[in-house]
């Protein structure tokens, strides 16, 4: 995979990569690609994906009863910048 392509992939998840990082990822993709050859030997036709460790279903649903929310101070406790009791970020340009 090309470096630029990898940088584009990274940008989709909001990561900037150095050239070195992009090259390393390209090498890792290659390594993975080789390892994934084993996938081709495994027939998964008609199989359902196993998403969870078990194929079980639950019936539990939470009752609609409010609990005490976080205090305003707790909500904002770890925020980098606060204005008027809100978390502030530089203007989102439309």
């Amino acid at each position: 995979m090309e470096k630029e392509e990898i940088k584009k992939l990274a940008h989709d998840i909001l990561l900037d990569l150095s050239d070195k990082e992009a090259e390393d990822i390209a090498a890792e993709f290659e390594k993975l690609g080789k390892m994934l050859r084993v996938f081709e030997e495994i027939d998964t036709e008609g199989l359902r994906a196993l998403v969870y460790p078990f194929d079980n279903e639950t019936e539990y649903l939470r009752e609609d009863v409010p609990e005490r929310p976080l205090s305003k101070d707790e909500v904002l406790a770890n925020a980098g910048k606060i204005t008027e009791n809100c978390v502030s970020v530089p203007r989102v340009l439309k």
């Binding site: 940008h11 150095s18 990822i25 993709f29």
Partner: peptide, 21 residues
């Protein structure tokens, strides 16, 4: 972008990029 790029090591970024792919 800046927070994330600075906040993760290269090897984590690698895993995220491949995982996302």
């Amino acid at each position: 972008i800046n927070s994330r790029s600075r906040g993760f090591s290269s090897s984590i970024k690698q895993r995220f990029v491949i995982g996302s792919y």
